[in-house]
Design a protein around this nucleic acid. Sequence first.
DNA 1: ATGAAAGCGCTAACAC
DNA 2: GTGTTAGCGCTTTCAT
Lengths: 339, 339
Amino acid sequence: MDIRDIAKMAGVSKATVSRVLNESEAVAEDTRKKILAIIEEVGYLPNYLARSLKVKNTKTIGVVVPDIGNPFYFEVIRGIEKLLDKKGFSIMLCNSDYIEKKELRYISLLASKKVDGIIFAPSSEDSKSLKNLLSWDIPFVIFDLPQINFNNNAVLIDHSLCSYIATNHLIKNGHKRILIIDAYRHMEVYSKFISGYLRALKENNIEFDDALFHESTPDIKGGYNVIKKVLKNKIGFTGVLTICDLASVGVYKAAEKFNIKIPEDISVIGNDDIPLARYLCPPLTTIQQPKFLIGYKSAELLINNIQNKSSIINDFKTIILNVKLIERDSVKRRQDNGN
Amino acid sequence: MDIRDIAKMAGVSKATVSRVLNESEAVAEDTRKKILAIIEEVGYLPNYLARSLKVKNTKTIGVVVPDIGNPFYFEVIRGIEKLLDKKGFSIMLCNSDYIEKKELRYISLLASKKVDGIIFAPSSEDSKSLKNLLSWDIPFVIFDLPQINFNNNAVLIDHSLCSYIATNHLIKNGHKRILIIDAYRHMEVYSKFISGYLRALKENNIEFDDALFHESTPDIKGGYNVIKKVLKNKIGFTGVLTICDLASVGVYKAAEKFNIKIPEDISVIGNDDIPLARYLCPPLTTIQQPKFLIGYKSAELLINNIQNKSSIINDFKTIILNVKLIERDSVKRRQDNGN
DNA sequence: ATGAAAGCGCTAACAC
DNA sequence: GTGTTAGCGCTTTCAT
């Protein structure tokens, strides 16, 4: 059942059917009605693939994130979905699992499938995907990468600010031995996240102890493992700061397992404020990131980019979104001055 | 840059290039190498759209869920993604927001975009989408719908068993006034979820009080609102049972707001066991549903169906997955016999 | 207002 | 082992 069949049944040409389908040109009202009736009756569905091949757009956007199991990305995706739905675009979802090869593969696949644009959180700054994207001339926006060195759309969070605020909060509450759990960094020697921590330490004349700096996968397991290791090595600390709330949950889990009380024994502070953070036990103090907005804005930027693609002025934007400290119950003031 | 260009540059025909691209037929090793080299050099990417139009498959699956913000669906999606990635399919994600019109629209769109199959959680049993899907002859599997009346692939949870187990658990702990928070039901007079509750009550000679039966949106807000209303109306209860964990979180929220202690004042039991349930305050007793598996199995069923589509024997399966009670700390034994 | 025809980029007979 | 050719189902000039 294709457009030719409908044309035949209506006694018109394919072109006319196409016209009513797309409301592209005027068609006599009665032929229009007739065609519509037939379409309805036989339940004809246009083949969007064929259309896309011809018109060179698919009305679909690819999004690739490193971990769809992390509520952070979930929230971002919700934001993306919201805007995209409004604009009539579908979304093709890919999960890179933090592995660059997969990321690269997906980007190619999406390009091959002719998505109109791509939104993604690159695994690293000089990710090859980025270069490919640029060379293929397909509109894209990146989000969540701490820093970018090239001219393209991006909506970002200042991760160094997050850790700076978090570290300061801990310090103000009398902590000095502050564990920091970062995500594995492939490319950068010091991540933005570390740099904010370091700055806060320096400003408060606290010496940096390398034994307090740890990297893990940004999830529950990662947070858990770090605490386990640190405990085993008898590295003393009173506060901990994690790259994402999920890692903080891992800290909670370890605390429960090893009989450490939060916040009595150790204070913990997260980063991103996932929806359930306030319902955790105890409610997690964290740095709130506008996750939904990150997604929404990314999508908005992308769609604008796509719709102005032909225009000469392709001015790219990078939007930096605000973060703020959310005080709950996982951080406690120390009287002993944090040693 | 298309296949014709590559052919020209390599001094061969399009057919030959196509052959090396798809490894469909033998090609002389040196021409193969030459073509590959050119492809690599110029960064040629095949147009999958054109291919799909010809070969009549897109290697993409549509999935439509009612609320991507609910961790339940998220986990299901993770399962879907896992299997689909393994099988080389992309996923097109749609969010119906529990509104049937949107669901219908998305299903049509997906069909139009020629996805090879669809996985979805229908909003109701005689959803028009179901009928369309059947008539369009596109493979699909549904999940999570309490009951189905037609012959097609499905992977389900017995919701009446969930509520039965949950209610019994509350009763065994001395509760008699048990609030039940169900999702809005469009079509069914009594949902499966209610029926299990009713059965448990009856078996224990507890009379059903209509004032304890409530419907809400299956999310935090929904759970919160029910408790608020019930409190306002001074309806007494000691236990509450919700359609999903997220609604239980809403109960938690209301409890906090109105100064009710869980589990001292009221016991609550969830349904589905979202990943963070065990970290809530207090850890939530709930009925565990194999969410990831639901997704994985759904995808598996679908792919099998697609790959055997041409075969005469199209035997559909409905898989019913097990659930089990997970005891944590949100349910407490009552000494006063629950009145 | 409508039709004829070319073509989007690819694959798959069929021929050699 | 490789080339020629006919479409896949649609849109879009260009005629009329």
